[in-house]
Design a protein around this nucleic acid. Structure first.
Length: 514
RNA sequence: GGCGCAUUCGUCUAGGGGCCUAGGACGCCGCCCUCUCACGGCGGUAACACGGGUUCAAAUCCCGUAUGCGCUACCA
């Protein structure tokens, strides 16, 4: 499916200006992937999977699933010093948590050196690369000089070493790096699926290193070779790679391969407008899990960062995302990641969930958190019974503790709550004592009776609900924010309720006498 | 410094010459509901970065400026 639009102004670029814009009519097509696409997610295992990476993975996955193609997972660990097994495991775990699977891989570049070595040999044979012997100082001097002359800070290695020089290097044991001989003059361009034509002047691109002096491949070589070797049809990656693209295209061209389609998606920023990183709280996917977010709303929210379906739809099931995602509708400008929106989305999903599913999610979360560790044997059952009391109130599972934590420990009045009672000791005693009197003698301990009794007492005292019920809440929960008062009383049972009332009353009485 | 990319309410966005006195969502503010916190309902606040063009008509096309971000490694 594509959209036909009249975009006369685009043609202005073709002509010499003036009226061209109004005379020409051109069809503009939003790029769309329809044939089965082979896409990849290629993180480097040097840290956690942050939100930006997760979104890149998600976009690729949506394309693979939506087109009936394949998702390939590749770990770009050519930097052996920074890559770690822990990071790799964490990234894989985070991908699985968020619901992204893959059809091929994970491939590790560290295990494919023969492929890259072979490619380097072919590049040598083709005369596309040359051995460079410049020292670090020389390189820095070159760049520095270019900078001072306000020129592109590019490195061009010397290629005309004499046999004598070469012999000298050999004698010194100096191994060369292999640099790509960037074709000059010239330019490298592609039609980016999100940004339109992107063009680089080759003069601005330095003779980048393709193989290090120890023979290992660099990122650009490995990525280009793999994208070809794995028959990737569409490279969808962050905008930070945009200047690597011409380099990788040059390598592919020198290897006689055809470049894939490219789509460079906008970066995700923190609230400081800087690219999202660990400094920004909850930037790691594992943090989201820990903070009580569900995978489905995270997917939904991530998909909406930089992509939109129309002017109003914000809730998508995963199937709907797969069916409707379109690379042509991805925005060109970076997006600030707003945790608040994720919370809202998460709360919406929580509320939409069937109760049994919600219960499973909540208990699973609490289990993982170790919430029940060291608590009474029946704590888990108790938590189950709170489900109807908290379901509509949570925006993330982690908020459970704030709302229902009081149930799992002996009465312990928070300072803020105590301050409230203390503010008017006489009234607090009256309200709590009145409540206690009613509840102690209640014939039936059911929700309706509790409600009726307290409301009746409230009328007797001539108070409004708020004045009267807040002390009850504090008396039993010790908190100012909690599950509903009637439901809470009903849940804990008469004995426990009465005990807590008496305890609170006792403390107040001491204060009154003093 | 060089190159690249971007720029619509605080945030995510719709928008592709007239449907735009710019629409939606989140936030925020107010009201209603209400036992707290929420949920829900109703209403409100708030944006086309700036300057030149082109055109009968510009958020939309062109040029310039500004700002932001990215890249500028034998990192990825």
């Amino acid at each position: 499916m594509f959209e036909l639009t009249i975009a006369p102004n685009r043609s202005a670029r073709l002509g010499d200006g003036r009226r061209a814009g109004n005379l020409h009519v051109m069809a503009r097509i939003r790029p769309e992937i329809t044939a089965p696409a082979r896409v990849r997610f290629a993180p480097s295992p040097t840290g956690t999977l942050h939100v930006g990476g997760a979104r890149t993975a998600l976009f690729n996955w949506l394309i693979a699933r939506g087109s009936g193609g394949a998702m390939i997972l590749r770990l770009e660990d050519t930097d052996r010093d920074r890559s770690t097994a822990e990071s790799e495991a964490e990234i894989l775990r985070a991908l699985r948590w968020i619901g992204i699977d893959w059809d091929e891989g994970p491939f590790r570049q560290s295990e494919r050196s023969d492929v890259y070595l072979d490619a380097v040999e072919r590049l040598k044979a083709a005369g596309a690369v040359y051995a460079a012997y410049e020292s670090e100082d020389e390189l820095n001097a070159q760049r520095q000089a270019a900078r001072e002359n306000r020129e592109a800070p590019v490195v061009r290695g010397r290629r005309d070493w004499s046999a004598e020089d070469l012999a000298g290097f050999e004698a010194e044991g100096r191994a060369p790096v292999w640099r790509f001989a960037v074709p000059l003059p010239g330019s490298t361009a592609w039609e980016d699926m999100v940004r339109g034509e992107v063009r680089f002047d080759n003069a601005q691109i330095e003779d980048f290193v393709v193989a290090r002096s120890d023979g290992t491949p660099t990122y650009n070589l490995a990525a280009a070779v793999d994208d070809v070797d794995m028959r990737i049809s569409h490279v969808v990656r962050g905008e930070d790679h945009i200047s690597n693209t011409p380099k990788q295209m040059m390598i592919m061209a020198a290897l006689g391969a055809t470049a894939p389609e490219y789509a460079h998606i906008p970066l995700i920023l923190g609230t400081d407008k800087k690219r999202l990183s660990k400094r920004h709280g909850a930037a790691a996917t594992e943090d989201l899990e820990r903070d009580g977010f569900l995978a489905a709303p995270v997917r939904n929210a991530l998909a909406l960062l930089g992509w939109s379906y129309d002017d109003k739809t914000t809730t998508f099931t995963t199937d709907e995302l797969v069916a409707n995602f379109s690379i042509g509708r991805v925005s060109k400008s970076p997006a600030v990641f707003d945790l608040k929106k994720l919370e809202v989305m998460n709360g919406r999903y929580l509320r939409m969930m069937p109760e049994d599913e919600f219960e499973a999610a909540l208990l699973g979360f609490l289990d993982n958190r170790g919430f029940f560790d060291g608590k009474a044997d029946d704590a888990r059952d108790l938590a189950k019974r709170t489900v109807p009391l908290v379901k509509r109130k949570l925006s993330s599972l982690a908020e459970y503790e704030r709302l229902a934590g009081w149930l799992f420990r002996p009465l312990e009045i928070e300072s803020e709550a105590w301050a409230q009672l203390e503010g008017d000791v006489r009234h607090s005693i009256q309200a709590i004592g009145g409540g206690l009197g009613r509840l102690e003698t209640l014939p039936e301990w059911d929700l309706q009776s509790i409600k009726d009794a307290l409301q009746d007492q409230l009328h007797v005292l001539g108070e409004n609900a708020r004045e009267f019920l807040e002390p009850q809440r504090i008396a039993i929960t010790g908190q100012t924010i909690s599950t509903g008062v009637y439901e809470s009383l009903h849940l804990i049972g008469r004995d426990e309720a009465v005990g807590r009332y008496r305890q609170t009353l006792g403390r107040l009485a001491e204060l009154w006498q003093a």
